[in-house]
Design a protein around this nucleic acid. Sequence first.
DNA 1: AAGTGACATGAGAATGGTTCTCATTGTTAG
DNA 2: CTAACAATGAGAACCATTCTCATGTCACTT
Lengths: 149, 149
Amino acid sequence: MSLNAAVGPRVTDRLTSAGTRFTPSRRRVVDALLAAPGPVTPAELDRMLDGAVPLSSLYRAIAMLEEAGVVTRTHDPAGVILIELSEWLAGHHHHLVCRSCGEVIDVEIPHDTEMGIRTFIDQIAAEAGYAVTGHRIDIEGTCRSCRRA
Amino acid sequence: MSLNAAVGPRVTDRLTSAGTRFTPSRRRVVDALLAAPGPVTPAELDRMLDGAVPLSSLYRAIAMLEEAGVVTRTHDPAGVILIELSEWLAGHHHHLVCRSCGEVIDVEIPHDTEMGIRTFIDQIAAEAGYAVTGHRIDIEGTCRSCRRA
DNA sequence: AAGTGACATGAGAATGGTTCTCATTGTTAG
DNA sequence: CTAACAATGAGAACCATTCTCATGTCACTT
């Protein structure tokens, strides 16, 4: 998959308001993330980009994109850094995580279920004095191929 | 809080079936985790234990306890390792995470809501060919004191 | 009670992913 | 065109975590 035409300008806007620009390296990173079925590690990004972006630049591109709100950093259960496009680009979704091989894929939840979840989340957070900014749901399990093995 | 009387024997059993034993260092780690209001980092554990367990031993104790299923390793949004007691000891719960200071506290969800969540989780996982082993819900927000600041 | 073997510990070295430094290159604005 | 500034790339630095190995401790046998 190549860089979706609708995404470019929106990312550019974000970076512009962050006082920076959408350079080739950053474009490559966003492009790779669009092509991925879920969050990826920096090492995987490096592989996907076939070393086109040196590690130091890759990490910096990730940091810049994160600061601009274009990508988000999460972690798999084993602690590996995972990068993915932010919700406003990738849509709200959750993760299915394989405990065995570490694979992470995006999944969506029915809208009404999502609404129900938000209701109790807001309640619980309010009780604790938290202002909610988001939520994550990770479904942990064993993927098809790991179950076979 | 000191080591709950009911916990000791159960942990001992677990470690025994893992072919190892509940040594003083490991006891200290479990004790500290019981005293914490949520998951803690190895560094925090070290502080809580006031250096009583050298870092290398601390990490090893954590690894052993994890292997025996006594503790679980997760991560805060910034990627820091967080250790907590496993569900069979701490009960099923979820996390309220402060995006600003990194604080993580345990929260419980109404039983019927939890049931509803499991239903769709099982569905989604089945579609993807995953065998579900658990799930995590992190509510992200800003805690009371960080909001003031 | 002493011996024995296996497991646990502690100090420090090694590792490796991530971040930092700095000289260089590229880009934008006047 | 050129001055100012941002981005890049190579490698060094950093630091949390893991590994190594010599030593200490425990449980079990006789």
